[in-house]
């Protein structure tokens, strides 16, 4: 009897473990079966390369949105990555022990603040600020990039910090013993040794930025055209879905799901890159 119970529970635990695999398969299946037919109907080239998004006249080109997602993500990476990595270095090596737990509370709070609050802050502070400083309409690539840079900071900080702290202490001590200053040891010995972990944090940051929706929709302006400057309004793949899903029907609705499919493929590629970097780190 006990033996039966043991083996039954073993199978139950196995099934719960397989749930995550099942969920991934279900997500893939439902997105692809609902999105791919629309891409086929519109024509893959017209869909991915088309520069006109006019649902009312059945034109569904998402090239401006793909470009929009890439622009705001690039902007967020350029602004957020240096600050994030340097902050991680500070927390891991230069932070006085007295304030370390306060600093860690701040980064965890940053990760916990809902995107809608970031978006609201962007709308009420960043957009008017950009408007005042540059004399342009504040909503656009710049506002979205700055906001996303802030939002990916906790991801970059915590993963980079873990990577830096996982580097063997002897690297640091060796550099110090050779007469290098603490700063030089950290930057030229420990940081290069933590390279793949730091890169993984950037890749994860890219994933967060490209997938962010509710904050971006409030500050990006949302025009479905190819932007010409960093002040121009922009629409990303994520915001395209959330803006129109509420009222879309038929092919329009399918085209929005297909936008989700394209976004999903981007995310899968980014995840793959992240896993490769992570396994490299483990080998080291």
């Amino acid at each position: 009897m006990a033996k039966v119970r043991e083996s039954v529970m073993r199978i139950v635990f196995l099934l719960t473990a397989l749930m995550s695999v099942l969920c991934v398969l279900f997500v893939c299946f439902f997105l692809f079966t609902n999105g791919l037919p629309a891409i086929a109907k519109i024509g893959p080239l017209d869909f991915l390369g088309g520069i006109k998004w006019k649902p009312e006249s059945n034109e569904f080109g998402i090239f401006p949105m793909i470009l929009g997602s890439l622009y705001v993500t690039c902007g967020a990476i350029i602004l957020g990555v240096p600050i994030g990595i340097l902050t991680a270095v500070f927390i891991a090596f230069f932070c006085p022990t007295r304030i370390k737990s306060a600093v860690e509370f701040v980064t965890s709070l940053m990760a916990g603040i809902p995107s809608i609050i970031y978006g609201f802050f962007g709308l009420t502070v960043l957009v008017p600020l950009i408007n005042d400083v540059f004399g342009v309409r504040g909503k656009g690539i710049l506002a979205a990039s700055v906001l996303l840079a802030i939002m990916i900071l906790p991801t970059i900080i915590s993963i980079s910090q873990q990577a830096l702290e996982a580097v063997q202490r002897s690297y640091f001590e060796g550099a110090i013993a050779l007469g290098a200053s603490k700063e030089r040891s950290v930057f030229f010995v420990v940081l290069p040794a933590a390279k793949s972990g730091v890169l993984a944090s950037i890749v994860l940051g890219i994933g967060r930025a490209i997938g962010e929706t509710m904050a971006v929709v409030m500050v990006a302006g949302n025009q479905a055209v190819i932007p010409e400057s960093v002040f121009d309004g922009v629409r990303t793949m994520t915001t395209n879905i959330v803006l129109e899903m509420g009222y879309a029907a038929d092919l329009h609705r399918e085209a929005l799901i297909a936008t989700g499919v394209v976004l999903f493929v981007f995310i899968l590629l980014i995840n793959m890159l992240f896993s490769i970097l992570r396994s490299k780190e483990r080998v080291q």
Binding site: S20, F30, G211, T213, T238, M245, I257, I267
Partner: peptide, 25 residues
């Protein structure tokens, strides 16, 4: 390895994609 990879993939999927999936399924 498969289970871990699936969990990592789930962790990386943005919430709007979950929203779409939840709506469809």
């Amino acid at each position: 390895t498969l289970i871990r990879y699936a969990a990592e993939t789930l962790a990386g999927i943005p919430s709007i994609v979950y929203g779409l999936f939840g709506m469809l399924f």
